[in-house]
Design a protein around this nucleic acid. Sequence first.
DNA 1: GTCGAATGGACAGCTTACTGTCGATTGGGG
DNA 2: CCCCAATCGACAGTAAGCTGTCCATTCGAC
Lengths: 174, 174
Amino acid sequence: MPVSSADPPGDRPSARDAFSDLALAVFRLNGGLIEAGDALVQDLGLTSARWQVLGAIALAPAPLPVAHIARNMGLARQSVQRVVDDMQAEGLVRLAPNPHHRRAALVAMTPSGEAAYHRAIARKDRWADGLTDGLPPAAITAAVRLLRTLQERIDASHAHIATLAGAPRQESEE
Amino acid sequence: MPVSSADPPGDRPSARDAFSDLALAVFRLNGGLIEAGDALVQDLGLTSARWQVLGAIALAPAPLPVAHIARNMGLARQSVQRVVDDMQAEGLVRLAPNPHHRRAALVAMTPSGEAAYHRAIARKDRWADGLTDGLPPAAITAAVRLLRTLQERIDASHAHIATLAGAPRQESEE
DNA sequence: GTCGAATGGACAGCTTACTGTCGATTGGGG
DNA sequence: CCCCAATCGACAGTAAGCTGTCCATTCGAC
């Protein structure tokens, strides 16, 4: 998405500008988290993406097929598929036959995958302790709630976006 | 980065878990914003990435070389370079000679680039009005502040990460 | 029982970020 | 004055997301 203009001249910061600032902050933090996550687990044979997939596997009560994992993560099937293929080739994950569907194998961690995942979590926890030191937990959870609310509204706004983008004129006057 | 485990059993949500939840929310919202931004400006010949680069150009008081724009955006030079090349090929942006450096041309918007950019902003504003409706602006700015604080701490934590990742043992005991 | 929709994987190709390496240009220290 | 460090662009290659198309499998409606 976009870039904010400088916040407003004199008055209260409009929700518009606050939203733009938030979008910028999300883009930057996304990059920072991925970069830091990669550095944190690099020597375990993991990356941020692999770690996230392992997390989705760990979170599920039973092994799932790739497409199901992708749905849980909010990603496209193929994105997860490639990561799983790579991890399978390196022995972090294995594919178990699915009694309910012949082609849709179930993805499960190997012992070495579990070991890497747990070491990753331990590192993340110690890292997070430093990052959140002195920040009120309530502030963090409030931010999480706000981000999730926006996420839900965005997911629900596809029709509105089509209107805004499709409307031939009328956008010159906002 | 990672995935949270379920939030804690009975007690207060630990900052650790809140942090994991925040990371997840940031990943998802990042994806949602990019997707929505792409849809919003698609017919203008823009993408979220192009729009952000144009924003960085618009924000600067004077035209800048690619490497400088990239620094301002927190991205790698090459990422911006390719987007600029594409936009130049399509006439959204033009390269002006740099009096101070023969090879480092200055990037400036063409009139058609400016037009697209302003239409994009108008759409974003109307979209943002809907998304933030009923949300207290203070909540948004508070979230922005939190995200920026974390961003700064992450940027400053590279040494710490190296310690956590490098320390051969000791991570089994957190 | 059969057909069709929903779901899943495979294959191919695109976008946007990254990295590393190279040569060109500039400007400052000795 | 010269050389070195910093900066910039070019080129090449990687990671991680996306899309679209195709075929296989399953399951439910009829």
